[in-house]
């Protein structure tokens, strides 16, 4: 369950009174009023035993899909990564053909906020184009980019940064 909590106490931040010497003003801020909204997504009741087995199958198939890696500041697929995408396309067209595909683009920490999200998305788009060229239906594929916000490695090393410049596969029912 995901909770989004919005606490509306920003009124507190700047609600204080400054006044000339002879005009003391009583603090009339609504500091104690906290508007809190919680949005809960309620899961429906279902047969969890069958769901678990389906999820396990999906997770096993996701492990067969190789992550695609990219060069610094680039979004073209080169070298051995082309073969990876071909193998991924084969899995997606056979064993995983019943699932929708979500491509998640990611970056290292060296870009800028918006540009990094766009770079991650272009990486996902490059993988999508390669998959479509290999015969995977475009309608099965959706994309999202997390920029630098979803690292698999947080060390300050070149190997670590390279691991984060990637596109991951997720299978959706």
């Amino acid at each position: 369950m995901k909770n989004v909590i919005l606490s509306g106490v920003v009124a507190t931040l700047l609600v204080f009174s400054g006044c000339a010497d002879k005009e003391p003003v009583v603090d009339n801020s609504d500091l104690n009023k906290q508007a809190v909204q919680e949005v809960a997504q309620t899961a429906s009741v279902a047969d969890t035993s069958s769901m678990m087995s389906e999820e396990m199958i999906r997770a096993a198939l996701e492990k067969e899909l190789a992550t695609v890696y990219f060069a610094f500041d680039k979004y073209d697929i080169v070298g051995e990564n082309k073969d990876k995408v071909s193998n991924d396309a084969s899995v997606l067209s056979s064993k995983a053909s019943a699932y929708a595909i979500k491509l998640e683009g990611n970056c290292d920490e060296w870009g800028s906020d918006e540009y990094n999200i766009a770079l991650g998305l272009k990486r996902a788009d490059a993988v999508k184009s390669a998959l479509v060229a290999e015969g995977v239906s475009e309608s099965r594929i959706s994309m999202v980019s997390y920029g630098e916000s979803n690292p698999t490695c947080t060390d300050k090393t070149k190997d670590c940064w390279a691991q984060n410049r990637r596109v991951d596969f997720k299978l959706l029912p």
């Binding site: 000339a20 003391p24 003003v25 801020s29």
Partner: peptide, 8 residues
């Protein structure tokens, strides 16, 4: 001169 007040 000026005076100020905040809740906490």
């Amino acid at each position: 001169g000026k005076n100020y007040k905040v809740s906490n």
